[in-house]
Simulated assay, not measured.
Amino acid sequence: MTRLNAPFLDDPALKRVLAALAAQGAQALVVGGAVRNALLGEPASDVDISTSARPQDTVRLAQAAGLRSVPTGIEHGTVTVIADGRGFEVTSFRRDVETDGRRAVVAYSDRIEDDAQRRDFTMNALYATASGEVLDPVGGLPDLAARRLRFVGDPRARIAEDYLRILRFFRLLAWYGREADLHALAACRELRQGLAGISRERIGHEMRKLLDAPDPAPATALMAEAGVLALVLPGADASDLPELIEVEREYGTGALPCWPRRLALLGAAGAAQALRLSRDETRAQHLIAQALRLPAPQAAYRLGRAPAAQAVLIRAARGDRPAFGWCHDLARGAGAQFPLAARDLMPDLSGPALGQALRRAEDAFVESDFTLPRQALLRIALQHKAEN
């Protein structure tokens, strides 16, 4: 028997919810990612609960225990039960009756085996009792031990239930897998066109999480081989991604976010639209693209230190390693102060001529590596007036 030694099992709020659901004999189990991560020795974020109680019984049992419930997804069998100010998603055991590739019609079940069969991957179909006993209805424990990502049952059937599972396959492979099931890869390749019916928001959500993995390069390479990467990000080239991961490890990334840099490296021109990036995310991609066209200090001066640093790492992955002291160069560029203002050129210049003169002087300041003094810049700014 495998037992789970996880801190969340000692959580008083979770204990209250599990006890409330089991008060009249129903099964109440922690399921999915929390169990998987605990067995891998990794932190668990959300703790989800699966139960043999029907949704209306979940509401009734929670109320009897003095807990509040919210019908957040009751049409799909999910009720959020709140204990000590925190919500736990509680979903009734289900089995699929009908699917269309995006959503499923389900019926409730009393059997954990039925519930496990409708889950996506074997390592996600692991359950734990309140005492920590792990239940494994579909053989997920050996797969988890081998870091082998395998669909529950027939991979084509699982994908046909929700084509987004193709991207979930590669995302979970990046985070938790070392070995991809060959039947799963073949099914992802064969059914990849089903992703055309998935919203770009959902695709973008998965791709952000995939590219945020510690090392998404192997999974992304398999995506490219399966024809999935080109489908969701036309024009993307993942060939330099392994080098970028090495560069990140060598130089460090500080507080810079990972996925925007890695997405910029892929070079997909239509990424913002394909992944439904937000306005801020799209602007960040544009800034990195501009920074790649400038020397690092100039990029830091004109665009900010963060996009300039992202560009340095991308260029390093492409073979242009930065010189020693590049961090100092970025800081110097970001901190440089152009010593002229419009008032310094007035009333000698005004209107468009004033703006052109300032830009001319600022360009000279940047080209001098921020060394030209104020008087020299004034002469440059006013030289056209003197010539005329």
Rank of each mutant, 00 (worst) to 15 (best):
L330A: 10
A317T: 03
R305S: 15
E243F: 02
Y301E: 14
A26S: 15
L372K: 15
P339Y: 03
Q63L: 07
F324T: 10
L266D: 09
P260T: 09
E206D: 10
E113I: 08
R60P: 06
L4I: 02
G252M: 08
G355S: 14
A130H: 10
E281P: 07
A230F: 00
T72W: 01
L349F: 12
F93T: 12
R343M: 09
F93R: 15
T122M: 07
L211P: 06
R318S: 04
Y301K: 13
R283V: 06
R202F: 02
A130G: 13
I82A: 06
L349D: 14
L313F: 04
A238H: 01
L263S: 06
H286K: 15
A6M: 02
E248D: 11
D329N: 04
T72M: 03
A341V: 06
R315E: 11
E206S: 03
R359I: 07
D237F: 00
G333P: 12
D320C: 09
F370R: 04
L172Y: 09
P71E: 11
E362C: 08
Q375E: 15
Q337M: 03
P260S: 09
A361S: 13
L29W: 12
R156A: 06
A224M: 03
T282K: 07
L345T: 04
S278Q: 05
D110T: 14
A145D: 08
D115T: 05
V81Y: 10
